[in-house]
Structure formats: structure tokens, C-alpha cells
Amino acid sequence: MSRSSNPYQDDRGNKDRSITKEGGGEIDATRQSGPTSAASGGPFLAAENMTGGYGAADILHDCTLTVEKGEIAVIVGPNGAGKSTAMKAVFGMLNLRGGHVKLDGEDISALTPQDRVGKGMGFVPQVNNVFPSMSVEENLEMGAFIRRDDFGKTMEQVYDLFPILKEKRRQPAGELSGGQRQQVAVGRALMTQPKLLMLDEPTAGVSPIVMDELFDRIIEVARTGISILMVEQNARQALEIADKGYVLVQGANKYTDTGEALLADPEVRRTFLGG
């Protein structure tokens, strides 16, 4: 925690777990949402000209991501390109210096992440994306936290999508395998019935068979009308199912086209897809 220059975050080398518990969140939860404004027209999600980072240095430079309704958009790029950072920016977890985020005809740039969930956005982070001590079923229930109606049906749908979760429903999510945990994470995000589902490397650490399966499930989800914005390390497979692809390099858009066109582009193939 001592990376920061904020003296309040300096723990003076304390490692005593009997007085403090590590693992606090990164998001400022005391922040309040600002106002939204109408911004009709344009794609379903339009995150345009995003510029900003975690501290003084910018990670994102004029980065633009758009997704149409029911479309799958995939972000690929080298490690450290700023893909996860771009996802966080779209979800309001970053203080942007420039740019705006519009969802479904509304400018939501000033909203906190919590309030974006209420607007129909769901996010599966790259790491720490389950509640480890809670059972699979409780994880899904927490996904449905903002819903006041009966979510039993959605839970059945998630279990249909990922049958293994039904089998393990009573088991703590922290005791599942990596691939099963990713399924819990995606299932949790689906429980809100989002209009836009954002996935940061959902197939990380997953075997090829499960990966294909997971991609199939993601296509199924998109068919129900949910827009999907996804970061993927398995660029080739991901672009195959993508309606739109973004290649991000050093926080800026390098190539933007349909998934097919990017796969066919010799330049992209050579530099990012390994031939």
C-alpha cells in the first residue's frame, strides 16, 4: 500500500493481521453521483475520447469504445496496453480527465459505479471476481442484490447456462477451480439482468475446452439482446465471435474494425495474432 504518495495509505510496514485485515477496496465508496443528461442518438454504449489514468500519468489516450445493442465487441492488445484500465474507465472506477460515457441515450459520465449497475451495466473484473467465502448460490444472490422482484427464474437460467454451478451451489466459491470460478463470476454479473455485460478476460486460466464452451455461452447471452464488451487474451478465437474488434496499444486505439476484417488484416495478424 505504500506505492502511493498519500500518507494515510502508508501502513509503516505493518504486517500484523491480528489488528488489521488487508484487502480493502480500491474504489472510493463515499463518492456521490453527479447528474446525468440526455444524449440521444449514437450507439448503445459510446465511451468516447477517454483520457486518464490512476495518478498523474495518463494510461488511456483518447480511447474510444462503442457497442451496439446485442453486439459482441472485443478488445485485444498486448499486456499492459490499458485494456483493463479502459474497462474500469467505462465503469466509472477511474477519474477521467477527458471524454464521456454514454449508455442508451444518456450521458452517465458523472455516475458512480454503483449507480451504473442500476442503469443496467454488469462488470466481471479480471481478478477477484467472486466472493470466496460465500457459496455459489449466495454469489448469484449477491449479483441480484439490486433486484426487488423474484430472481429465481434468472438463477435457473444461469444454472442452465452453467450446469456445474448447480451441482456446486452449496460450495464456497473460493473452493472452486479457476474455470468454475470464472463461471460463477459471469453468472453473478448476469443475475442483475444487465443490458450491457462487460467481461475482463473471462477465459483467463481456463482449459481450451471450457474456453470454447464459455465463448458459446457468451454468444448465447448476446443472442438474448445483451450487449457484450469483452477483453480477451485469446485474440483469434475472440475475434471470430466478435461483431466488432478493437486493438489497443499503449492506451490508444490502434485498429478498429469488424472481427472478421481484423482477422483478415495481414498487419494485425503479423503483430498481434502471431502470424
Partner: peptide
């Protein structure tokens, strides 16, 4: 209870609780 579970969720993973729409405050 829903509130009790949200407390356990917050204890497990603050950021994810927030991303699930749980109000941390």
C-alpha cells in the same frame, strides 16, 4: 437476510460488492 449477506459479501470483496450494487456506506 439480504442485508446480512451483503455484509458478508462486503467483508469478502469490497469492490465486487460495490459492483453488485451493494451500497458500502
Amino acid at each position: 437476510t439480504r442485508t446480512g449477506k451483503s455484509m458478508r459479501a462486503f467483508s469478502d470483496n469490497e469492490d465486487l460488492a460495490l459492483l453488485s450494487g451493494i451500497n458500502p456506506e
